[in-house]
Design a protein around this nucleic acid. Structure first.
Lengths: 257, 257
DNA sequence: CTCAAATGTCTCTATAATAGAACCGTATTT
DNA sequence: AAATACGGTTCTATTATAGAGACATTTGAG
């Protein structure tokens, strides 16, 4: 029961990403294997509304300032900067690695807040980055606490491989998730990017449903040794506890109450 | 030659703002005076694509995390934090008032970067805020440098009044713009909000077309006296000159080259 | 506790909007 | 100078949408 025209148009928008920020009409039409007339009408309509702008010189289209407006509104709604970000910065200072908050959104995890490590070599990621839930510590630790049917949904949605370490076998994944849920955290290396380790713990809403995760990540050569890992888990869980307390006090406006 | 379905759908999105962040299907349908079936299909399609999310409890819709993604991309593209923001912060420290950068977007000015004053009473505005070009120093100083036909377009677009000070008469506006262009800056009080003063100067692309403005704003009781105004103009123009130099070096990816 | 009003969702069909091919004038490339 | 590629437009068969109405639930008032 969805609108085909709108659905297609939003699909077109997805082609505007960091790698391909600008598109010409025929260029995008070829990429999507769609008639250029259709693409033209879609792009022109988005432009009329400020969601895309056309470079008057090159005639190519790119994302417009309207997204700044909506993006800021979502950010304000999450309201993480006042209380949660300081906790994350504190954590990043203690551990000397980047810390980030990942939000559950359908079959993806979305990075909503970041505290970067002060070290020159660090894990770096953009706000708004979207990753399938089966990849990496930040996402798998969320997936581990989802109901079984949603796990199945996610796995049937297709477990794309990003690196050789990415788990793509459903049985292996279920076993891994089981383990994660039992220990309460997830440590992974090289699943998202071959040179990165991650350590994530879950965050819940008032109904004890998982809604987010707090994760430490850094270059793989600085990954904690087996003896040091428990310490890192402890520090991370302490930070997560503080954030969780905040979540419990102020029920969020986004997604869950 | 635009798509009516998409156009209508984007119009629906506009109802999700800071004042009304959540909408039920019938509630929004009533507000827009449209059949609730139509609204339902639009909202459901946006939700499917992550642009809206539905609260499973209340069934009401709100903006989704997808906007975080696109908003961040636009922000990254503008790439103001590295060079321009420091200049703005420096300026804000010197003058002890908030400083913000406004981008030209169609018939509106959009706030794209902010350096807030350290004083407890200060002018405060959100990134992404959209204001018609005929209102306030930050916008009028842009409008003053636009070609005559675009000025006419903007005025015919309707000069909405925000405060008693807002200029709504076309002739008065043209005279005002003439003066602004001659002196190179615009000082206004109470046009955008009754308790705020603003002082703005224009910024140009490589083709000497106006694309943005740099503005100081603060509470009206701290507005500069007639003797002190020239000093403030000087400091602001010096900051603008630095930003302009950056603009000239790196031609921007947004809107103009 | 009961009834009425309001809600999100779904079905149906006349109607209106869209898809997609073909075309146009311009710009760029060869 | 010819040929290709481009954004934009026009046309009509086809298809998706508009809008009324129905439905099961939920909410709220009496």
């Amino acid at each position: 029961m969805t609108l085909k025209t709108l659905d297609n148009s939003l699909e077109v928008l997805k082609y505007f990403n960091k790698e391909n920020p600008t598109w010409g009409v025929r260029e995008l039409a070829k990429e999507m294997d769609i008639s250029h007339s259709i693409i033209y009408r879609i792009l022109a309509t988005f432009e009329k509304q400020g969601f895309l702008i056309q470079n008057p010189e090159t005639k190519k289209y790119e994302l417009g300032l309207r997204f700044l407006e909506y993006g800021q509104m979502v950010k304000d709604k999450l309201n993480l900067s006042d209380f949660v970000l300081p906790i994350m910065i504190n954590l990043a200072d203690t551990i000397k690695e980047s810390v980030f908050l990942t939000w559950l959104d359908g079959t993806d995890g979305v990075t909503v807040e970041i505290a970067e490590s002060s070290q020159t070599i660090k894990f770096s990621v953009s706000i708004g980055t979207r990753t399938p839930l089966h990849i990496g510590a930040s996402c798998k630790v969320i997936m581990a606490y989802l109901p079984e049917e949603r796990k199945k949904e996610i796995m049937e949605h297709g477990m794309k491989r990003l690196t050789p370490e990415t788990i793509t076998d459903p049985d292996e994944m279920l076993a891994d998730l089981e383990k994660i849920q039992q220990q309460g955290w997830c440590f992974s290396t090289g699943e998202y990017s071959h040179s990165v380790f991650g350590l994530g713990v879950p965050l819940f809403n008032s109904k004890k449903e998982v809604i987010a995760s707090l994760t430490i990540a850094g270059p793989i050569y600085r990954k904690p040794t087996e003896e040091k890992l428990p310490d890192m888990v402890n520090v991370l869980q302490y930070g997560a506890m503080n954030i969780q307390r905040y979540f419990d006090q102020y029920s969020f406006k986004l997604y869950h109450e």
